[in-house]
Design a protein around this nucleic acid. Structure first.
Lengths: 105, 105
DNA sequence: ATCTTTTGTAACCCAGGGGTTGCACATCCC
DNA sequence: GGGATGTGCAACCCCTGGGTTACAAAAGAT
């Protein structure tokens, strides 16, 4: 029900350096793996792997320009997940309140 | 800045079975590790480990009743994270728009 | 044509984490 | 007191995944 699709996004966001990659990307708007690797504490292949993960869950997109591949963040995905989390929190909240009332009643 | 505290919550939510634990807990409102383990595909020690992780990041709380420990979800944490994600998404959105405008201009 | 830069990937290393079993200690029930 | 039932760990296994180096092929630059 409230299933597995969520966890993929979460685990994608759950790694510190991957988060750094995302942030760095959001700050510069667009950038290649090589450029990002220059300002991050990891190698280019590492950055690429992270970008692939982020791409798989739709948190970034990519376009090819000449020989280089430019990645950019997809904010809709973040928004969507945020919304679903908020909904879920609300749902659980009301349910917990109901259960508590029932227990006391 | 938009730093590491976030990633802990995300990585906590990022594991499928841990997510199951959280959901199961939210459905029953409160429950011990043993009870949860009975309806989940993993052993009690596994459930405990997951609960500890969730506890560390504040996604669940626990109270001791007699010999058993009852865990319950903390929705505030979920809400808070959801809010911050939404904020971040908005911030990035405007920034990306600005950058794009700048590039075109 | 050549030299440089960037991508794409393969091969590999290694720590951490999710999972298990097993057992000692605490509680409750009668 | 004694038998269930729960909790708390420790010890261990195994695999995933984050990281690296190294090299070949593609695209620019001169």
């Amino acid at each position: 029900m409230t299933a597995l699709a969520e966890t993929e996004v979460f685990s994608a966001l759950g790694d510190p350096t991957r988060w750094q990659v995302l942030v760095a990307l959001a700050e510069r708007g667009e950038g290649s793996a090589t450029v990002l690797a220059r300002e991050l504490p990891v190698s280019r292949p590492a950055v690429i792997k992270h970008l692939l993960v982020l791409d798989r869950v739709g948190l970034v997109g990519s376009r090819k320009v000449g020989r280089e591949v430019l990645y950019s963040p997809r904010t809709e995905r973040l928004e969507a997940t945020a919304r679903r989390m908020a909904e879920l929190a609300r749902a659980w909240d009301t349910r917990l309140a109901a259960l508590k009332k029932l227990a006391e009643g």
